[in-house]
Each structure stands twice: as C-alpha cells, then as structure tokens.
C-alpha cells in the first residue's frame, strides 16, 4: 500500500476500486450537512414564519396553505441556489485546474462577459422578457466561448494561450458592455446591472426544474472526467504519457465547464465570484495540492444558498444575491488567507 502522506480509505466493488481521502470526505460531509441546514432554515423563513418541523409536515400535507408557501414559492429558489452553486463551484474548479491558475474561472474563456453582452443587447435594443434575456445570454455566452476556443486553437489549445486570448476577447466585450451601459437609459442600465451581478429573485419551478435537470446531467458527466483532469494538472506531456488523450479531454472539460456556467447564467444571470472562491476555499479546507471537484461543488452550493438567505432575509433591503456572494465569499477568503499564515508560523 502506498503512503500518500494523508489518511485514505479504500473501497473495492468488483473491478472498481476507489481511494478516498479522509479529510476531503469529512469536509464534503460537513459542507453537505451545513448546506442542508441552511436550506431548511431558508424554507422556514419569510413573512410567514414556520418551524423546521412545520416545514416537514407542510411538504407532506398537500392540502395545507403552508404547502403552497413552502413547496410552490420557497423551494424552487432554495433548490436553485443549491444546484446553481454546485455548478459554479465545479466549473470554477475545472478552469483553475486546467490552467493551473488560481485566478482562472469560467470568465477567462469569456463566457460570463459574452452572456452579459447578449443579455444587454436584448435589454437595451429589444427590451426583453425573462425568456428573451435568458436566450440572449445563452447565445452570447456560447458564441464567445466558441470564439475564444477557436482563436486559441493552434494544433491544440495550450493553457497560456487560452488565458491570453480569453483576456483579449473578454476585455473587448467588457468595453462594449460599458459603452452599451453609457448609451442606455438610466432605468434600463440599472436593471441590466442587477441582472449582470446575478439574482435569484425571479426563480420559480420553471427555472429551477429545467436548470436542475440540465446541471444534474452535467455533474454526472463530470465524474468520469475528474481523473483526466488530475492528470492534466501534471502537464500535457506527463498526462499523455499516462494514457490521457489530451486534446479531447481538455475540450470535453472546457465544454463541461462552459455548459455548467451557461445553465446558471441563463437562469439567474452571471452570479460572480462563486466559481473563483469555491475552488480556492475548498482547496484550503481539504488541504489538497490541486483544486478538487467534489468539495468545490459542495462549497459552491453552501455559499450560494447561505448568501441567498442573507440577501433575502438578513439585509434591510433585499439585494441581488451576487452582491452578497462577493462580499461574504471575499471576506471569508481574506480570513482564510490570514488564518492560514498564522497556522504555519
């Protein structure tokens, strides 16, 4: 048995064997438990207050008024926060691993900026309903991501070139977005800014259900890709030597990361910072060398769910959840950085 310097568990089921890191497992379990508790509290809170046991009975009792409130009104938003958070965490972890850069997030391939451009165009020029804005965001984001990948492709996509092309395209679109904001009426511009920072205010079962199914499928796809992702962290040559088909694996991972962000952006706007912070915070909690997918997913879910609770119930005026994610997520990352250095003294 190999000593990895960390306590590990082994699981064997016929031909499949798994090596599980004890600390990572514990972190995931704690994060999942925390997410569930926050979700329960969120279901119970609001103008119509319930206790946790009342929430459970309300879910079971289909006739009651509380059932309508909990299941029809509150649950889609809470579920959306959990699922969208997990999706953002995973996509951030994928991009940070692929580029081996702690600053990388799906933004570097221009997706979020492109989605914002698409949504802005719909809002400013056409004046859009929810569905039209979502469509515009999806189209803009996917087109931008494809453009960045194609421009960076030259007998393979190398991480450094992807970053530089991403910077260039995103900067151009950012400028275009700023210009659109300057030309728009103040009201439209403010609505666009609210969308651009990400909000779960309009989330009903339609968005939560569709988004949830799409993201669920994508997360399942992520499971077999986690292993090639680890190998790619060692560098292209080392990964190739260990039997990874480098370019197809990288394309699949980029596509997966973009698709996850796309699903969230279309439903709730580009919720910023979760993707960047989830990977870095979970890495520090699990104390692993690289950014792992599962802890990032759980942390993303917890982060978005807790932040949405704060945005909805704690603040004096309800704000878009994106505002809270950056403040709380950023604050926690700062605390971790300080704490980390104290420990190592």
């Amino acid at each position: 048995m190999i000593d990895f310097g960390r306590r590990t568990l082994w699981a064997r089921l016929g031909p499949v064997s798994l090596r599980l890191d004890v600390r990572s497992l514990a972190v995931c379990a704690v994060l999942a438990a925390l997410s569930l508790s926050v979700a329960l509290v969120a279901l119970a809170s609001g103008d119509f207050r319930l206790s946790v046991s009342e929430v459970v009975s309300a879910v079971l009792d289909r006739q009651s008024f509380a059932h309508t409130i909990v299941v029809d009104w509150r649950m889609p938003r809470v579920l959306a926060a959990l699922v969208f958070g997990a999706a953002l965490g995973v996509s951030g972890a994928i991009f940070q691993s692929l580029t081996r850069n702690p600053l990388a997030s799906p933004d570097i391939i221009g997706f979020s900026t492109g989605a914002y451009t698409g949504a802005l165009l719909v809002m400013v020029l056409a004046g859009g309903s929810y569905l039209r804005v979502a469509g515009g965001a999806l189209a803009g984001g996917l087109a931008t991501a494809a453009l960045v990948y194609l421009l960076a492709y030259r007998r393979g996509v190398q991480g450094f070139r992807l970053i530089i092309v991403g910077i260039a395209v995103a900067a151009t679109l950012n400028s275009f977005n700023t210009w659109l904001m300057l030309t728009a009426d103040l009201e439209v511009a403010m609505a666009a800014a609210t969308w651009g920072i990400g909000s779960l205010n309009d989330t009903g079962w339609a968005q939560a259900g569709l988004g949830g199914v799409v993201i669920g499928v994508l997360l399942l796809v992520a499971v077999p890709l986690a292993r090639p992702l680890r190998q790619l962290e060692l560098g292209d040559d080392a990964a190739r030597a260990r039997g990874v088909a480098v370019e197809p694996a990288r394309l699949a991972l980029v596509a997966l990361g973009v698709a996850l962000t796309a699903a969230v952006s279309a439903a709730a706007g580009p919720i910023v910072f979760v993707a960047l912070a989830a990977g870095q915070i979970s890495r520090r909690l699990t104390r692993t060398a690289g950014v792992a997918l599962a802890p990032a997913a759980f942390l993303g879910a917890l982060m978005l769910c807790a932040c949405d609770y704060v945005a909805q119930h704690v603040l004096p005026t309800p704000l878009p959840v994106g505002v809270v994610t950056v403040v709380l997520g950023g604050g926690y990352l700062i605390w971790l950085l300080i704490h980390e250095s104290r420990r190592r003294l």
Partner: peptide, 9 residues
C-alpha cells in the same frame, strides 16, 4: 482579488 471583490460588492 478577495478584497477587491468585497469592495466591489
């Protein structure tokens, strides 16, 4: 990045 995010928010 973290402090920038907090202030930006």
């Amino acid at each position: 990045v973290a402090l920038g995010a907090v202030l930006g928010g």
